[in-house]
Design a protein around this nucleic acid. Structure first.
Lengths: 231, 231
DNA sequence: TAGTGGTCTAGACCACGCG
DNA sequence: GCGTGGTCTAGACCACTAC
């Protein structure tokens, strides 16, 4: 049993309400149950804390938080499909093309000018409601192939499972802007309505950037969730 | 040398550009330099990674990221004053009163109805520009005293340094809304302009909630920054 | 005071990048 | 193949909560 499996096991038990009183077993008990050392238990626990599922109190125990099914969890985004596993996520491809990186794109990707870049535009729905407009760019030297079918399901699952990419981390910049007429129409909102915007730069574990994107979210149905460690 | 001191030391060196080629020394070298074990080095490093200062690449090394002085760092908020140490942060007290918790407040704080609660409203400026309107509530059983002077400087520094509170973590919910006329006037914006909003619930390390707040940020000058670990 | 999580040591082996 | 970060073990002691 490695750390990743341990995370899944404990997370599953939490989501199935298998723990009494919203309290986890002690670290000693988890070590015993799963036959691992304290290091592995604490590493798995740390992941659950970072993702906002539980919190720890020294001298007392580990407590399960109330679930927030209405929020996108910022720190753990595995794509919308995983994040909202209880809702139906669908996507419509609005545009797909390959361009050569200009100054701006080369800067985004820290790559050479002229590098081939996939430019993908999607409109995504949550239970059938327009949820976000996504402009996403992929370095074609890393993401060698994309098509309509992949794009309309889950790109990230494809990258992980089929292309075997090791996704490391994402820098996220969150802001708010007025919607243009075009974007408002797509999201069934009014021109100049607010929009919640996330700009992502996504890195592989080897440090190279394979994806940069700008996503405009429907402000009426979007909330983001994050846990800040202030210790 | 403990972990916290180690974080400060390394962070200071990073901010002073004391590392060549945007690269940190290896873990072995840091162990040697500071006379600690690998555990302590990696714990300190993890903090810097979480706060978006560096990233790690297995087999290669640890790299310093470009600084983002224009963003509020979500995961490490130590109050605005610390977050924007290069800018002048000032605050105007708009309202201060003590109320007894009603149903809603009791629910926010997971406390009994009737618990005394400080209600604080501030307008905060960044280099003199209206930056955010803050509605913040404090459980008076934990935060026993507040006054105008404290509120117009840095409440969190007071809570930490004077009241010796051990602040643990904050749950943050981020959204976007249209501004009311009143808030627009305060922020020098127009009615129905967008606003970036953060709702915080802040816990002590012992698990009790001492603060809940709603902050409306000026969308023209506010960006939030966060790092998502996707491994 | 008993029991819990938090910090730290000392060591081993593995996985990956890079030349 | 060497050097780097990633995972894991086994154990000690500390800090805090709760009774």
């Amino acid at each position: 049993m490695n750390s990743k499996q341990l995370i899944s096991k404990i997370k599953e038990k939490i989501l199935n309400n298998e723990y009494e009183n919203k309290k986890l077993p002690t670290e000693d008990m988890l070590m015993e149950e799963f036959g691992v050392t304290r290091y592995s238990v604490r590493k798995a626990i740390q992941n659950l804390v970072d993702h906002g599922l539980i919190y720890q109190v020294q001298g007392s125990g580990m407590y399960i938080k109330e679930r927030r099914d209405d929020c996108l969890v910022l720190s753990s985004t595995e794509g919308l499909v995983m994040g909202f596993s209880n809702k139906s996520v669908t996507s419509t491809l609005l545009d797909l093309k390959i361009v050569e990186a200009d100054d701006d794109l080369a800067n985004d990707f820290k790559c050479k000018i002229g590098t081939p870049i996939y430019k993908v535009t999607r409109l995504r729905y949550l239970d059938g409601v327009p949820f976000c407009v996504e402009y996403s760019n992929y370095n074609k030297n890393i993401v060698s192939y994309l098509n309509k079918e992949i794009i309309e399901s889950s790109i990230y699952e494809y990258l992980r499972n089929d292309l075997k990419l090791n996704i490391g981390f994402a820098d996220k910049i969150i802001s708010s802007e007025k919607l243009s007429r075009k974007h408002a129409d797509l999201l069934n909102l009014m021109e100049n309505d607010p929009s919640l915007i996330i700009n992502d730069t996504v890195y592989l574990t080897n440090g190279s950037i394979f994806n940069s994107s700008k996503v405009l979210y429907n402000y009426k149905i979007t909330k983001l969730f994050d846990v800040a460690n202030l210790k």
